[in-house]
């Protein structure tokens, strides 16, 4: 990647190392995300995609290296400070609070800046949630939980969304709905880092793909060159 690209990247990750306790799982992750882009992290099970998102958010056990967002170095910041810069995560396990109803889950993340989506727009994107506003988090289906997990980070004014496998285990119609949502969010101006196993889905929404393997970024493939690189990608992902 060129220096010019790095210089004006919204998110820039350099030599990111990460640990769960004693176990060293990220070994120097490097990548950039430009303002307004949708970028995916692809890779096999255990490659380090989730760990990379957690490390960016500051909630991996320990991290070193450099993670700059909007020019600010975040490596020494607490997660809540990183969140307040405008980064929000939709975790792999979705993290819907069982003791809170849909409305409370939706309203939980505090506003950190202007410019978030209003509730009306959020219910337009996720009509199913509107009917379930009073339902307890524990009573939602997997698809509803996933929608809620995305929905609740849209109203806070966060600008960079980290989405961890939002299509995992969901029915095809819901996968399609989430695909349309991501496209709509890109139009709204959000910047998105998307972790995906399903690269047919990834190809339908992303600008660029980073390939993660054994705790490193090993390749970058622009979406328009995806077809030409299919063999390589199959080898990386072992499919």
């Amino acid at each position: 990647m060129s220096d010019a690209q790095t210089a004006n990247a919204l998110l820039s990750v350099r030599d990111l190392n990460g640990w769960y306790g004693e176990s060293h799982v990220l070994h120097g992750v490097d990548f950039d995300v430009q303002e307004g882009e949708v970028v995916t992290l692809l890779g096999r099970n255990g490659a380090g995609k989730t760990s990379t998102l957690l490390a960016i958010m500051g909630i991996l056990g320990k991290r070193t290296g450099a993670v700059t967002y909007n020019g600010a170095e975040t490596i020494a910041m607490a997660p809540r400070q990183i969140a307040r810069l405008g980064i929000a995560i939709c975790p792999e396990e979705r993290g819907i609070f069982a003791a809170l109803n849909v409305d409370e889950n939706l309203m939980l993340p505090p506003r950190i800046a202007d410019g978030g989506l209003d509730l009306e727009r959020i219910f337009e994107l996720f009509p199913n949630l509107r009917e379930r506003r009073r339902s307890q988090g524990s009573k939602l289906s997997g698809g509803e939980q996933q929608m809620l997990a995305i929905a609740r980070i849209l109203r806070t004014g966060a600008h960079l969304l980290l989405l961890d496998e939002p299509t995992e285990g969901l029915a095809p119609v819901i996968v399609q709905q989430i695909g349309r949502t991501i496209a709509a969010l890109k139009k709204e101006g959000f910047t998105i880092v998307l972790v995906e196993q399903n690269f047919r889905f990834a190809a339908s929404v992303a600008d660029r793909h980073y390939v993660v393997d054994q705790g490193r970024v090993v390749d970058m493939i622009p979406n328009r060159e995806l077809d030409a690189n299919m063999d390589k990608l199959h080898a990386y992902l072992g499919v």
């Binding site: 607490a78 990183i82 969140a83 995560i89 409370e104 939980l108 505090p110 806070t156």
Partner: peptide
């Protein structure tokens, strides 16, 4: 209340509540 929702949420998953910007 909203404060109570923070408390219930942090009881379940303090790390995630902190990652949303709340001072846990």
């Amino acid at each position: 209340t909203r404060l109570g929702a923070y408390l219930r949420a942090a009881t379940e998953n303090p790390v995630l509540v902190g990652a949303f910007g709340v001072n846990v």
